[in-house]
């Protein structure tokens, strides 16, 4: 005879618990994340180029100022060296102070800065 309340239902369904999102969903999510990342990288590269341009132009704008200051100092040192040379070589006949060693009018910076 059956027990009171009847037999329990026969378990015939497959027992497959939910094991997370499907492969297709994960693949899509990863693709989306990567796409966003590359979009940011691309934007960042464009921005980096502009930042570099900004930095370079800030230096370009300062070049004349710094060059002018350096030129004044170089000229002052040149004149001082010329005076020293005149003083040292005043007894040597036929010596031309500040004469270039080259037979060429082109300007050349002094090789030695100071002789102590």
């Amino acid at each position: 005879m059956p027990p009171p309340g009847g037999f329990e239902a026969v378990k015939y369904k497959r027992n497959l618990p939910f094991r997370g999102p499907s492969g297709l969903v994960i693949l899509g999510a990863v693709t989306a994340v990567c796409a966003y990342g590359f979009y940011r990288v691309g934007k960042g590269n464009l921005e980096k180029r502009e930042l570099q341009r900004e930095k370079v132009w800030s230096r370009i704008h300062l070049v004349p100022l710094l060059l002018a200051e350096g030129d004044r100092d170089t000229y002052r040192r040149q004149q001082a060296a010329l005076e020293r040379e005149k003083e040292i070589m005043k007894d040597v006949k036929g010596w031309e102070p500040g004469k270039s060693v080259y037979n060429n009018a082109r300007y050349r910076a002094a090789e030695s800065i100071v002789v102590l």
Binding site: P64, L65, L67, A68, E69, G70, D71, R72, T74, Y75, Q78, R106, Y107, A109
Partner: peptide, 19 residues
């Protein structure tokens, strides 16, 4: 400066103006 090819004595006046 471009015209003087590096001679510091050539552009002192312009340099003072810049400063």
């Amino acid at each position: 400066k471009n015209e003087s090819r590096g001679d510091p004595a050539h552009c002192l006046k312009e340099g003072r103006r810049v400063t």
